[in-house]
Design a protein around this nucleic acid. Structure first.
Length: 311
DNA sequence: AAACCGGGGGG
DNA sequence: CCCCCAGGTTT
C-alpha cells in the first residue's frame, strides 16, 4: 500500500504541539489586528486580493490600497474588464507592478475557468496566475475556512523557534520542515484555519525576525529557542540582501512612476530624463515592454516614439 | 538552486 | 545612514 500514514512519526511531542496551538490561538483571540480583509463582510476575492498585495508589501501600506481597490473592483469580473493602465495606476507604489498585471490575469482566469467565483480547491487555486503554494493555502484557509498548511515566513520562523530552537528557518523549505509544521495543524477545518491566522499573527507581531518580544509571547515558557538562550543564526552564510541603488529595479520603478503620472504618452526625452545611463535605461524600457507594463505608441514620426501604460 | 522583481520604514 | 522586509516566476 503506497498510502502514506496520516499519523506518521511526529517530530514534536503532540502534547507540546497541542498546548502551543491552544495558547497561540487564545492569544490571537485577544490581540488580532482589526484588518478589513478579516471582516465578516469580506468576499473570497477580497481575501485573494489582500494576499497578493501582502506578498511583498507591509500591512500598513496594503490596507488603504486594498480598501480603494475592492471598492472600485469588487468582483473578479470587474477587475477583468478594467484597463491595465488603470490597474497599474491603482496599484501605485505597492511594488513589483508585474504582480498587478498577474492579479488581473488571475481575475480573468477566475471568470473564464470558474464562472467568476474564486475556487476553494487548492489545485485550482494553484493553477491561477500569481498564486503559489503559500497564497493558495492562505486563500483556502482565510476565505473558505478550510484546512490547509499555511507556511509563510512568519509561520516558518515561529515553528523554527518554538520546536527546533533555531533563530531562523532554513533558507529553503524542506520536506522535513513541512512535516514538522503540519504537526501543529489541527485535523479539522475551523481549527486549522484558526491556527494559520494565529501563527502568522504571532510571527508578525511578537515572534519577529529582528527584535522578538518574548515577554509578550504566550508560549515563551515552552519555546526551544528561548530555553536554549536564543542562539544566533545557525545558517552561517547570511544571505545578502539584493542591492538596490543603481539597479535595473530602481530604473524600472522610475520609468513606471513617470508613466503612472503622465496624462499623455511620454516622449523619449521625458523617459531619458529619469535616468542618465542610456544603455541601462534602454535595456529597462525594453524589459518593461516585454513584460507588458509599457506600451509603445506609434506616432507620425518613427524617430520619436512615445510610451504609455498599456491600454 | 538562484536570479529577478519595488518601495518604504525602522533602528 | 544602512539594513531589512518577502512570495511567485523564470532561467
Amino acid at each position: 500500500m503506497p498510502t502514506p500514514s496520516p499519523a506518521a512519526a511526529p517530530d514534536v511531542d503532540p502534547a507540546l504541539a497541542d498546548g502551543v496551538r491552544r495558547d497561540v490561538v487564545a492569544w490571537f483571540g485577544a490581540h488580532a489586528r482589526d484588518l478589513p480583509w478579516r471582516h465578516p463582510d469580506r468576499t473570497p476575492w477580497g481575501v485573494l486580493v489582500s494576499e497578493v498585495m501582502l506578498q511583498q508589501t507591509p500591512v500598513v501600506r496594503v490596507e488603504p490600497a486594498w480598501r480603494a481597490w475592492t471598492a472600485r473592483w469588487p468582483t473578479p469580473a470587474d477587475l477583468a474588464a478594467a484597463s491595465p493602465a488603470d490597474v497599474l495606476r491603482a496599484w501605485d507604489r505597492l511594488g513589483y507592478p508585474r504582480r498587478a498585471l498577474r492579479l488581473q490575469e488571475c481575475a480573468r482566469a477566475v471568470v473564464e475557468r470558474h464562472g467568476g467565483e474564486v475556487p476553494s480547491d487548492e489545485e485550482a487555486l494553484l493553477a491561477l496566475p500569481g498564486i503559489g503554494a503559500y497564497t493558495a493555502a492562505a486563500v483556502r484557509a482565510f476565505a473558505f475556512g478550510r484546512r490547509s498548511v499555511v507556511l509563510d515566513t512568519n509561520v516558518r520562523r515561529v515553528v523554527a523557534r518554538v520546536a527546533e530552537g533555531a533563530a531562523v528557518p532554513a533558507p529553503a523549505l524542506t520536506v522535513g520542515e513541512r512535516r514538522l509544521a503540519e504537526a501543529f495543524v489541527p485535523a479539522d477545518d475551523a481549527g486549522a484555519a484558526r491556527w494559520a491566522a494565529a501563527s502568522m499573527e504571532l510571527g508578525a507581531l511578537v515572534c519577529t525576525a529582528r527584535a522578538p518580544r518574548c515577554e509578550a509571547c504566550p508560549v515563551a515558557d515552552r519555546c526551544a529557542w528561548r530555553l536554549a538562550g536564543k542562539p544566533g543564526d545557525a545558517h552561517a552564510p547570511r544571505r545578502r540582501t539584493q542591492a538596490w541603488a543603481g539597479t535595473d529595479r530602481q530604473v524600472r520603478g522610475r520609468i513606471m512612476a513617470l508613466l503612472r503620472e503622465a496624462l499623455e504618452p511620454a516622449p523619449a526625452e521625458a523617459v531619458a530624463a529619469v535616468w542618465p545611463d542610456d544603455a541601462q535605461r534602454e535595456r529597462c524600457l525594453a524589459g518593461l515592454l516585454v513584460d507588458g507594463l509599457v506600451e509603445r505608441v506609434p506616432g507620425e514620426d518613427p524617430e520619436r516614439p512615445r510610451y504609455r501604460l498599456p491600454s
